[in-house]
Amino acid sequence: MGVTVLQQYPVPEHKTGTYVIELLTKRILALGATQQGQFLVDCESYLSLPQMGSTKTVHILHNSEQPASVFSILESGTKNIHVIADGLFDLLMMKLSQHYTSKKQTKIESKGPRFELGDFCVKFGSVTMNQNFKGILIEVEYRPCVMANAVWGLLREFLQGLLGPSITVQPPQHLLSRMNEIYAPIDTIYQYLEHFSAYRKVTGLRSA
């Protein structure tokens, strides 16, 4: 597991998401990448019932890169607590339905093609919430390196080269505090959650 950066890519007016992803696909294939299947990251959120005191939110995420794991993040005020569990955790959440209710209409996912280019792994995901297109998320992983601090300059150079100079590349908010730590799969999940939460707040719908 190498350092991963998640980057939002704007969809211009009068253009569809599929068109932009096709454009990016052509670009990365021209650089010499090979397509290695598809990927999917999804997120479902549960709200605690009022009789348990203050409302808490539990986000359940799956990542096709770690197919045997379920990631859950509990939002409780200022602190986020995460638990990484087996696939059985999904069934456990169903059992807990009398304490936590699922907000079905906010189920959000990012899916699309996955490419390998040298030591990089690049994924172009189109984000949909309830079949409604929301935007494009680009995930870039540099697999040999495990420290964000050391590899950030290199990743920025790669992203700038791939996405063009019009996009400003900033280190993700979540990574800023963990620049000198060893990167773990949960760090990717936190980045997805960050972006998903932002997309949920945006009300405007776009055509896919």
């Binding site: 650089l31 280019l117 040298g118 030591d119 990089f120 540099y142 040999p144 390196c145 420290m147 601090n149 050391a150 590899v151 300059g153 290199l154 150079e157 790669f158 080269g161």
Partner: peptide
Amino acid sequence: NLFSEPCKKCGCHLHHTSLLP
């Protein structure tokens, strides 16, 4: 500093063909 130091000649992290640091 394998990943953090750019090349002394071209000043880039990644070489444009090999995509290696």
